[in-house]
């Protein structure tokens, strides 16, 4: 690690307090993601439990989910994970403008995913086979889980937008950028949850 990437205080010395509190915040944030994971795991358990509760899946009167659009939409979200990864890499290496562009690309892809979700929802709700979360266990588990995930994506998009504004205002320096690390962790987490949800809803 070069001196330029060390956290410095206003006198140009290494900021030991920052190093230690960053450690705490990192650990706390990871544990937060773990407990968030449990939230999803509980609902995934509920879905699998209902799915195997006897009457076959999908329940009578409901068509299997079409994978084509979902596959495309998933790739949009996974792509945003890749751009976020390179945003952080570029920030670490001091390429600020490239970092900003990658961050903006992540936001656009994330918002695109949300748009795709909205499109898919309208298809299910107003399509041939009307499904809404009150109509049966299929709708209940699908809309609750994907809705929860969509909420997480939405929060992530808001967070990344704040990151853009903060970065433009110069909040993050080369030594002190935990906000960006946390954003990347959160965004990856949201992506990975979607890998699981995509598999169990569309592929299983």
């Amino acid at each position: 690690m070069t001196a330029a990437s060390l956290p410095l205080d206003s006198h140009g010395n290494v900021d030991q307090l920052y190093i230690e509190t960053r450690e705490l915040r990192l650990q706390g944030f990871l544990l937060f993601l773990v407990s968030d994971c449990v939230l999803f795991a509980s609902f995934i358990f509920a879905y699998l439990y209902l799915r195997n509760s006897g009457q076959g899946w999908p329940p009578p009167g409901i068509q299997r989910l079409d994978v084509a659009f979902a596959a495309w939409n998933s790739v949009v979200l996974f792509g945003s994970g890749a751009t976020m990864h390179y945003a952080l890499e570029n920030f670490k290496h001091g390429n600020f403008m490239r970092y900003m562009w990658f961050l903006l690309a992540t936001i656009v892809l994330g918002a695109g995913f949300l748009g795709g979700q909205a499109y898919e929802y309208t298809h299910l709700i107003y399509g041939e086979h009307v499904t809404w979360w009150g109509s049966g266990i299929f709708g209940a588990s699908f809309f609750t889980l994907t809705g929860m995930h969509g909420m997480h994506v939405f929060i992530g998009v808001c967070y990344l937008t704040v990151l853009v504004l903060q970065s433009a205002a110069g909040v993050y320096t080369r030594g002190k950028f935990f906000g960006i690390t946390a954003g990347t962790l959160y965004w990856h987490f949201v992506d990975v949850i979607w890998v699981v949800l995509f598999s169990i809803f569309y592929l299983l």
């Binding site: 509920a46 439990y49 209902l50 266990i137 588990s141």
Partner: peptide, 19 residues
């Protein structure tokens, strides 16, 4: 009215006990 635990719409009361 999201029928997670409502048996009339396919939900399972026993699932609540598990959760």
């Amino acid at each position: 009215g999201v029928p997670f635990f409502d048996p009339t719409k396919g939900g399972s009361p026993v699932m609540w006990q598990h959760m």
